[in-house]
Design a protein around this nucleic acid. Structure first.
Length: 500
RNA sequence: GGCCCCAUAGUUCAGCGGUUAGAACGGCGGCCUCUCACGCCGCAAACCAGGGUUCGAUUCCCUGUGGGGUCACCA
């Protein structure tokens, strides 16, 4: 049961993405650094799926993570699909382990059962916000007698298990990139370890698995710094040897905030579909927060592995600049020989799966086979030119103030992430969602759909809108709509000035 | 707001006590050229501020400022 983690044995590292939605660039980024470190030292790189959030996890996105990482050439040694000596590598399959460990914590008094309802917690939180005081659990159930608490739980009363954090003193750890980081215990919340549905939270599952899988170095994003003391407390409570911690800077949007799909494409698949070369993409990620030194910035994965050391890693959060990525990509495309480029074009741009939906759409609208290409042009590439047809679209919304239009489009863009029907981005779901959205926003279908049509294709005459959007794809549509919104916002207002 | 992290051109990185502070992307100008792109040449562009330490600070320390993260029965 004890893990093989002598300080001089080969390192074991891991990434632990949760399978919710599209494979995130941030996951690939952390994967790259973990991979590079592991390979550099002849260690193992493990992929563990953290699917403890039953509400958000989806089976498809686990596959998507595999696919995205493999596309980039970031291969793992142990994982749910390839197996390994410390499996299972999917947390939903390790529930008994967590139950066992949590019981130990309960018995040693490092954790306690909490029967507070969500309502009470919400109320507590509200008061804390109003009082502008400290946030966090107030310790209501802390002093419950363990035996009676146990009896209540066994009688079926819903409860969670919380970590008992000392009131006094401080908890510290050494970050390999940032030095010693210390937190006053009073600042640390009594973190929930086990949810009422019997699933562990990230904090518990993460520490238990890292220990049991013999993880020696935890390399992850700096968003985790604040919760690391909780993990440290857990290691101490269990009496386990702690791994070394390295918190990398977070990838940022151009405005400096944490990279998010609201502001930037964040799906690895977007970059694949747009035709970035995987080796280029990896190289580009490797220039963020890492440097070979000597002003060298073009390198292969193998070269990065060979050169990898923590002294070359910079802890600040880099902006992910798609313009520079595109420049790298253009450069690498030029370096491909013609045969190779042709092969990649076929594989990436013209595969059967991608073309087939377009074939169906186009069939009854083209007169000659060759018309196909201009007809489907709007399904490829990034930006689209909507300026020519804008006056026509504008007429459809001539009674609206510019701001109304902009807000409606922004709202739609925001909502497609929240609404489950739109999230899948298929024609049927999109239509249902969009019609409801019209109702809610007070826009007529003819108004909104016209705007979306122009934004997505640059034209006023297209196949049915929602079939079109499905083929254009969510990420591409998001990009185009962002561009369109900026364009409209930059137009002079056309509605009468007295209109509210 | 509390706590934590970070800080060199617009952006990504070099620098690791003494440099005309270097490169890439982007920007600007030029050359090449039937156009565009490529290619080539050049220009502008940075050490957040104030205190220390030191013979000497972009570099080490402190404070401030700015940016970011985090404060869930999400990870």
């Amino acid at each position: 049961m004890s893990a093989p983690s002598d300080s001089n044995s080969a390192p074991r590292v891991r990434i632990a993405p949760s399978p919710t939605g599209d494979p995130h660039v941030g996951t690939a980024y952390m994967g790259l650094f973990n991979y590079a470190f592991a390979r550099r030292h002849g260690g193992k790189f493990i992929l563990r799926i953290e699917d403890t959030d039953q509400a958000r996890s989806t089976p498809g996105s686990e596959q998507a993570i595999f696919e995205a990482l493999r596309w980039l050439g970031i291969e793992w040694d142990e994982g749910p699909d390839v197996g390994g000596p410390f499996g299972p590598y999917r947390q939903s399959e390790r529930l008994p382990t967590y139950a066992l460990e949590v019981e130990r914590l309960l018995q040693s008094g490092h954790a306690y059962r909490c029967f507070c309802t969500r309502e009470r917690l919400a109320e507590l939180r509200k008061q804390q916000v109003e009082a502008k005081g400290k946030f966090g659990y107030d310790g209501h159930c802390r002093s419950l007698d363990p035996e009676t608490a146990k009896a209540r739980a066994e009688a079926g009363e819903a409860c969670v298990v919380r970590l008992r954090v000392p009131d006094e003193g401080e908890t510290l750890f050494v970050d390999g990139l940032r030095g010693t980081i210390r937190f006053a215990n009073a600042e640390i919340d009594d973190q929930v370890l086990m949810k009422s549905d019997g699933f562990p939270t990230y904090h518990l599952a993460n520490v238990v698995d890292d220990h049991r899988m013999g993880i020696t170095h935890v390399i992850r994003g700096e968003e985790w710094i604040t919760s690391t003391p909780k993990h440290v407390l857990l290691y101490q409570a269990f009496g386990w040897k702690m791994p070394e911690f390295f918190h990398l800077g977070l990838l940022r949007n151009p405005d400096g905030t944490k990279l998010s799909k609201r502001k930037n494409p964040v799906s690895v698949f977007y970059y694949r579909e747009m035709g970035y070369l995987p080796e280029t993409f990896v190289n580009f990620m490797g220039t963020l927060g890492f440097s070979m030194g000597d002003d060298v910035e073009r390198f292969t994965l193998a070269e990065m592995v060979e050169a990898f050391e923590w002294e070359k890693v910079h802890p600040g959060g880099p902006v992910f600049d798609p313009v520079k990525l595109a420049a790298f990509n253009a450069d690498d495309i030029r370096d491909l020989d013609d045969e190779e480029l042709y092969r990649r074009l076929l594989e990436r741009v013209l595969p059967r799966e991608r073309l087939m939906p377009m074939v169906r759409q186009t069939k009854e609208r083209i007169k000659r086979l060759d018309d196909f290409v201009p007809y489907v042009a709007c399904f490829f590439g990034g930006e689209v030119d909507y300026r020519a047809d804008w006056p026509k679209a504008q007429k459809k919304v001539k009674k609206r103030a510019r701001k109304e239009v902009v807000d409606a489009l922004k709202g739609w863009l925001d909502e497609i992430e929240r609404d489950p029907r739109a999230r899948a981005f298929d024609a049927e779901g999109l239509e249902a969602f969009s019609r409801d959205y019209c109702e809610a926003s007070g826009f007529k279908a003819g108004e909104l759909f016209t705007l979306l049509r122009l934004a997505s294709t640059g034209r006023m005459a297209t196949p049915p809108l929602f079939d079109t959007l499905e083929i254009v794809g969510k990420d591409r549509m998001r990009e185009r709509l962002r561009g369109f919104i900026a364009f409209v916002a930059g137009q002079p207002d056309w509605a009468a000035a007295d209109k509210k």
